[in-house]
């Protein structure tokens, strides 16, 4: 199992996740850029500082489970898994090639991917099942489910949120990547989510809010013990497209196929950001 004692700093991992994502979005099919960039610190912190997982034994029975419910963040997940050692980073080059298991949305053929995702609003119900299973096993395991904010417009999320609270699943942690954008615009102008923290509270969840680009804040929120009998949600305030000034906070960053010049500009921006 990875331990948090000697684990690498999450920020460096986040920077490498971003670079991988940008490179993959410069490939022939492009990719989900914006929502992968907003996830970098969330996934980096989870894999380097929080999750008890074993890259050499991904199905280890006592592992924590991470579900990427916003399946369109698949590129960030692949990058995080590669950085965590689940497979060599060179395998990222298989993304979107004919016959490749590295699809835009994650599939469990990829080492470290627990469940397929892509259709929004599935992860939290799955997490309820994992939480019930861990409790029946009396196992000291947790299930983390990473959701998009636009995803919270799906009714199934709130159905599962209600059930999770009713079942008192305090081994369940949801992380909301609150980048405030969906494909065609701002969440608040399309189907408003606010007051989001109040909504989760009203559903019986313990709510923590953090700067989703601060690995320190994320680590603190994700490692603090749960309120007994309550599932935890961490609302991570993020910026879609974070790290690439020409797409940051723009809905059109949702899916991008970076041309040669854009690719170079994006990498340069990431390096400037990492150096600053």
């Amino acid at each position: 199992m990875t331990t948090t004692i000697d684990a690498p700093p999450a920020a460096g991992t986040a920077a490498r996740i971003r670079e991988h994502v940008v490179n993959l979005c410069a490939g022939p099919e492009g990719g989900h850029l914006g929502g992968s960039m907003s996830l970098a610190e969330i996934l980096a912190t989870l894999y380097t500082r929080v999750l008890r997982v074993d890259p050499l034994d991904p199905a280890r029975p006592d592992r924590d489970v991470l579900l990427l419910s916003k399946g369109h963040g698949g590129l960030a997940l692949y990058a995080a898994l590669a950085e965590a050692g689940f497979f060599p980073p060179e395998r990222l080059g298989e993304y979107a090639r004919p016959g490749s298991e590295f699809m835009a949305h994650p599939h469990p053929e990829i080492p470290g991917v627990e469940m397929p995702s892509g259709s929004l609003g599935h992860g939290l119900a799955l997490a309820v099942g994992f939480g019930l299973g861990f409790r029946l096993d009396q196992a000291d395991r947790r299930c983390f489910v990473v959701m998009g904010d636009g995803e919270l417009q799906e009714g199934s999320v709130w159905e599962a949120a209600s059930v999770a609270a009713a079942q008192r699943l305090d081994n369940l942690v949801a992380v909301v990547d609150r980048n405030r954008l969906q494909i065609t615009g701002a969440t608040e102008t399309i189907d408003a989510l606010e007051p989001l923290a109040d909504r989760w509270s009203a559903f019986g969840w313990s709510v923590r809010q953090v700067d989703g680009h601060s690995c320190e804040e994320l680590e603190a929120a994700l490692t603090e013990p749960p309120a007994p009998g309550r599932p935890t949600v961490v609302i991570a305030h993020t910026v879609k497209g974070k790290g690439i000034p020409f797409v940051e906070d723009q809905p059109r960053s949702h899916y991008a196929k970076l041309g040669e010049r854009q690719h170079a500009r994006a990498l340069a921006a990431l390096r400037r950001g990492a150096a600053s």
Binding site: A125, L126, G129, V163
Partner: peptide, 12 residues
């Protein structure tokens, strides 16, 4: 949620 939870439970 019933079906999703069943899947998570089976996976565990």
């Amino acid at each position: 949620t019933l079906m999703g939870a069943a899947a998570g439970l089976a996976k565990s």
